[in-house]
Amino acid sequence: MAAVQVQLPLPVLPEGWSAEKDFKAIGTLSPATQRNIEPVGPHFLAHARRKRHRRTFSEDDR
């Protein structure tokens, strides 16, 4: 999907913020919900192909 465009600006980096390689992992994702995706449509088929061949999005992009 195309990237969303956000006009509002990112905040200024707070004084004294530092992290190794400028990245700080902080929290973890909330537990996911298990559901069925409908096996229908071109995007599902691409998903199924990636899953069966254990490929990532970027590998698929190539």
Binding site: A3, V6, L8, P9, L10, V12
Partner: peptide, 14 residues
């Protein structure tokens, strides 16, 4: 992915 603007003069952003 998203494309985000930066504050007026640019600089360090979070």
């Amino acid at each position: 992915a998203g494309l985000f603007a930066v504050p007026g003069g640019g600089g360090d952003v979070l």
